[in-house]
Computed example of a mutant assay.
Amino acid sequence: MTARWPSWRTDLVISLVSFLGGLVLYAAGGWRMFLGASLWSGVPHWVLLVPLAVMAGCCLLRRVAPGTGEAIGLVALAADTLLGGSLGTALIFTQVVYDACVYGRPWLWRANLIGSVAASVLAAAVGVVAAGDWRGVVLGLVVALVAVLPTLTGISVRQYRDQARVQRLRAEQTARLAAWERRQAVADERARMARELHDVVANQLSAIAIHATAVLSAPDPSPQLVRQAVEQIRQSSVSGLAEMRQMIGLLREDGGSDDPATRPGLASLPQLVAQARADGLAVDLHTAGLDRVLPVSVDFAAHRIVRESLTNAWKHGTGAVVLNVDVDGDRVLIETDNALRPDAASTGSGHGLIGMRERAALLDGTLTAGAEDGRWRLRASLPVRHTEEAGV
């Protein structure tokens, strides 16, 4: 709409309509309404059209220079008053004052308010003195109608526009914040899916790679060794595909991911250990308190950490690994310990450790892992009471 009808056209229309309205009032006898006669005798009444035209021209400055327009309008009003005063010029001046309060600088409407009130009081006093009667106060009322009333109207409109502008800015900020939160949620969801994908795929692929490397490294592998390795590779592949389908199913369901029956937990710890032993990792398991019912988030995170810790013990360590899973009233403690592999520094990408630390941090827990005194050690502590109180 603004492109179709520019603001300058609106100002031009207001100026022309004001001037034409003043001409109509002039033709109807609305001139020399205040003093009744000109201070200069012999001046023709059509001279009043000059301040009328100037006042109408001030409307063209309502947006670009409202202060200048009001100053010119004051001069035109003063000249009109000295010539006897016309109704049309006074009415157009109210528009000029209104525009100055709406479009001018903040100090301008304050100056208008103070000046118009002072002028009204002064005019009332002058009217009483000049008339010698209290009825002379009507002169102050006329000044109030011409100056104070449009000033108050302009201030109200300006405050309304300022409030609307503030609300619009707040709405834009809220929209930007909502967009940022959506992007952050998408990024968090991608990170979570990447972590789940790593936990599901990397463990099984690591087992496949180890068995394949063992067969290829053998100088003259026997058919029994090849068959055993192929069986382990097949078992790891089938297990990985099953877990992949389960993860995809959970991602497709709405609200189904919080069902304990569909999410693995410490109840499957024997199967994890059996799988690790079948893959060739000797595991010495020690457990306590596994009969306790854990929050779903803690149970799921503990399962993932145990699984990834066994994979890391396989990658970074050698020989038998001691796995300790202890559940008490305050926390779930997971510890692994085995001898450090000589070439462990160049093994793995580190995503598994990052994922485990993120899981522990989400539950306000801690996780440390690394080489220590020639051994590979991992220790994770997941609080239980905090998650129970939070309803997780």
Rank of each mutant, 00 (worst) to 15 (best):
E189T: 14
W180L: 14
R168P: 05
R190M: 06
A178M: 03
A175H: 04
A194H: 06
L197P: 01
L177T: 07
Q173N: 09
E196D: 11
V166W: 15
R183W: 09
R183P: 06
E172N: 07
E196Y: 07
R176S: 08
W180T: 14
E196M: 06
V166H: 14
A185S: 10
Q184N: 13
W180D: 12
D188A: 14
T174I: 11
E181A: 12
A187F: 05
V186F: 05
E172A: 15
Q167V: 13
R183I: 13
E172V: 10
E172H: 14
V166L: 15
R176L: 05
W180P: 01
D188K: 08
L197D: 03
V166N: 10
R195C: 10
A171F: 02
A194N: 03
R183M: 10
Q184P: 02
R183K: 11
R192S: 01
L177V: 04
R176D: 01
L169S: 03
A178V: 11
A187N: 05
D188I: 07
R182D: 03
R183Q: 11
R170Y: 01
A187C: 04
A187S: 06
V186K: 04
W180G: 09
W180N: 11
R195Q: 11
A185R: 12
V166F: 15
A187V: 02
L197F: 08
A191M: 11
R195N: 08
R182Q: 05
L169Q: 10
R190L: 05
R183A: 13
M193L: 12
V186Q: 09
A171E: 07
L177Q: 09
